[in-house]
Design a binder for these strands. Sequence first.
DNA 1: AATTTCTATTAGATCGGTCTACCAACTAAG
DNA 2: CTTAGTTGGTAGACCGATCTAATAGAAATT
Lengths: 339, 339
Amino acid sequence: MKKVTLHDVSRAAGVSRSTASLVLRGDPRIPEATSDRVRLAMAELGYVYNRQAANMRRSESMTLGLIVTDIRNPYFAGLTMTIEEAAHDAGYTLFVGYSRDEVERQYMQLETMVQQQVDGIFLLPATGSELAPVCGIIDRSSVPVVQLARYFSEELDYVGPDNVAAGQQLAQHVSSLGASTAVLVGGPEHSSARTERIKGLETGFTGSAVAFDASLSAATTNNAAGGSEGVARVLDQGIWPDCIIAYSDAVALGIYAELRRRNLDPGRDVSVASFDDIAMAELLLPPLTSVSTYPELIGRRAAELLLNRIRDPALQPQRSLIEPALKVRASTAQWRPRT
Amino acid sequence: MKKVTLHDVSRAAGVSRSTASLVLRGDPRIPEATSDRVRLAMAELGYVYNRQAANMRRSESMTLGLIVTDIRNPYFAGLTMTIEEAAHDAGYTLFVGYSRDEVERQYMQLETMVQQQVDGIFLLPATGSELAPVCGIIDRSSVPVVQLARYFSEELDYVGPDNVAAGQQLAQHVSSLGASTAVLVGGPEHSSARTERIKGLETGFTGSAVAFDASLSAATTNNAAGGSEGVARVLDQGIWPDCIIAYSDAVALGIYAELRRRNLDPGRDVSVASFDDIAMAELLLPPLTSVSTYPELIGRRAAELLLNRIRDPALQPQRSLIEPALKVRASTAQWRPRT
DNA sequence: AATTTCTATTAGATCGGTCTACCAACTAAG
DNA sequence: CTTAGTTGGTAGACCGATCTAATAGAAATT
């Protein structure tokens, strides 16, 4: 029941360990007759290549790390899927950690991944990551890191949607509907993405007839529960906006539910619009107006960036913004002033 | 720019490599004065523990592997989240691969994970896994494997919902509505889960007034696109069931969409019921009747099982079935005969 | 005082690969 | 015949930890 090593293989094939190793890596110096013999021995003995051992001499481990907050949000699930695909296609195996938006958890995950000698890390930072210790482990090991969707450091690569543009597009659409008040609901309070989306909304609404006050917006967790809670908080303050802008589609789901609980009909009594445009947005009733932020593109771009940086660590930090696109649907199209 | 090793640390602290190693692992034989000195040196030099090196001597790598088909299905996302949590809490780092239900891809992922010396693997098998090569790598390395939600081998541990019971519960509910015909839509054709659900439906429907013919069911991919396609295939054959049973909630989403495209109102013109009960089921319009199969429980149970087996590989293969629970909602409650 | 036990520490083998440097045998060129 | 080059292969150091067996010195026991 002992492990079969290259040494066992080489003995069985009547060659040296070095030769077996060369066969393993397809070195052209080894003639076919020899390599066939070695490969036969491998098959017969049931040899399993030990990457960890190989990694000790080579400088790379052929593993990457990915830390995201929560894949029950389909936006992050899509992002995760493309990143895994890119990593797999490039020959890497992927460590994954879900931080649940907790810095402490995220820190532990970063730490163990670095200890496992990952060649690079995709990080969707938990809110609060700008605080000290998160960076500590990153630059102690000088492992390449690409920030996804949110950022906390200017010195690390970043790929995300152009949130400001997304906010502007949404604002323009909402004001074109003739709404007079709009409010933002949901999203983690201090994340860069939320700040940028608010900025986009504000600039988009200036000069329009819509009153938008960012200080009235309700920050919450980025999921349906957050949406319900956020919209409740707004309405219970006596604020009755014409249009509710959800921080994300995940949040919008909760907003729909809470509105209905209060006998309000989304798309008729109040418009709802959102960010992300996950597949579900189109299937909801009413279909949800949303600004698409293309998680697949972000993932693909991030993978390119990280692989490039692994090849050349001296590269300048890059920021790559993905252009959003507004998808107008019935949740806002049918809006009209309350009678 | 070179890596700091335990050797560097020990020299800086004026002790031997062995002593530094003992400090690292908190061995009680080392007095505090010494270990403080060593820990100080570690902090000053920016030492990073190299687990791969440690793994070469120890027999474990403190990593686990998880292979699932697609986390854009919230059911699998939930399963994945709990497994990651359990792994993390037990001190393991998790490799993740998404097979996209392709055996070839799954095989490659199994192979690299085994080569990375994982201590155990959670496997949600791709359809078609019963075929030879998938097992090859598993028993060549004799790595513990727990099958999730579907199975292809009796010799490996398995945790999943009690699909037969789930099918029965659904069938009983549907016949209690007074429906006269029901059809199953969606799901990967040869998966164990689908076979079992059909079996449950069949036994549940026998003796009732409902005509259920499994051979009329439309097998598809397990997502919304599959649901749309499946229901289209059924209706285009001229079959007009009273109740459509979706293979999963993900499939049901597509069924809702396709029915509406044909100006049919789910819950009024035709009942819809489903398996899984993801969070979204309740938020749909109409809210979707579904049998909850508790992915969180499955994940937790699977983690327990795998960790136990790692501790004691001689354990008998176990099968653990999670009891389902029917959640009746408006998508079936309002059903009445077409006029 | 001699022996035993205990404490703090260490040298050196080891895990399973890779990599450098070198070698032997044969062919080709001058 | 000598020299240079090519082909096919190998010995042994190396990566960075762990682990076993051993040791020197102090304390305790006889």
